[in-house]
């Protein structure tokens, strides 16, 4: 199977307050259409790894390739454009633009990409919101939504440009089990029908067990990577 993401010997250090190694020789490959979960204790470096894989953090040693392109060493502005087109990121703490409406939040990455007309984008954004079950909230300012609703809006935003890879940092952390299952089903559907790849950090072992593969981290190392049944 062709791979969409390939990381080799990723090492990262923090120097504040003392130098210590957060990521230790991380190598991993994600295939097209694969749904992978990353698990591990709090503070083991999962979020740190996701920021590197999502091209936002460029301060690391090693090599990162996405979609066959070498990401390591690229300019920030190039990476911004790359993220816009290829990566949908769902943050650990649902980060929406608070003063914009939910609909605007979902539309903005697509407006930035500029491939479709604003009308088409609005229609697609509404579809994503419907998928997430918050279409009725579309015209509310993001700040008036509950935590769970904001998280679902953030997922809708991550999906809007049909990214090659969706990266989520505990995207279901704020959801009840019912909504959590709905979100899982939606993401699962995307990997199967559209061939998009998904990397999710989660503490929910039930959720993790339903993904294609679980990568387990401990103190900056990958200690195991095994497919589920």
């Amino acid at each position: 199977m062709p791979h969409v993401l390939h990381a080799e010997h990723i090492n990262k250090y923090y120097h504040d307050p003392v130098t210590f190694q957060v990521l230790n020789d991380i190598s991993l490959t994600i295939n097209k259409g694969e749904f992978v979960s990353i698990v591990g204790k709090s503070g083991c470096g999962k979020s740190t790894l996701l920021y590197i894989l999502s091209t936002m953090d460029t301060d690391y040693k090693g090599k990162l390739e996405i979609n066959g392109e070498l990401i390591t060493g690229q300019q920030q502005n190039y990476l911004a454009h790359f993220r816009n087109q290829h990566i949908g990121f769902i943050f650990q703490f649902h980060f929406l633009l608070q003063e914009f409406t939910v609909l605007q939040n979902v539309m903005i990455p697509a407006l930035k990409l500029g491939v479709h007309t604003p009308r088409e984008i609005e229609q697609r954004a509404m579809e994503k919101l419907t998928l997430m079950g918050i279409a009725d909230q579309a015209n509310k300012p993001a700040k008036n939504l509950s935590g769970g609703q904001q998280q679902r809006a953030a997922i809708a935003r991550a999906l809007i440009n049909n990214p090659t890879i969706i990266i989520g940092d505990e995207p279901t952390g704020n959801l009840d089990s019912e909504n959590s299952i709905i979100v899982f089903d939606i993401l699962h559907e995307l990997t199967h029908t559209h061939g998009q790849s998904i990397i999710i950090v989660t503490h929910d072992s039930e959720f993790a067990n339903r993904t294609d593969r679980i990568i387990e981290m401990h103190d900056g190392h990958i200690v195991s990577s095994h497919s589920t049944e």
């Binding site: 816009n84 087109q85 990455p109 930035k112 990409l113």
Partner: peptide
Amino acid sequence: MKDIAILKAIGFDAYD
């Protein structure tokens, strides 16, 4: 600050 970070994360570059 937060808005800037989000916009950058979803694909706005420094010029934008």
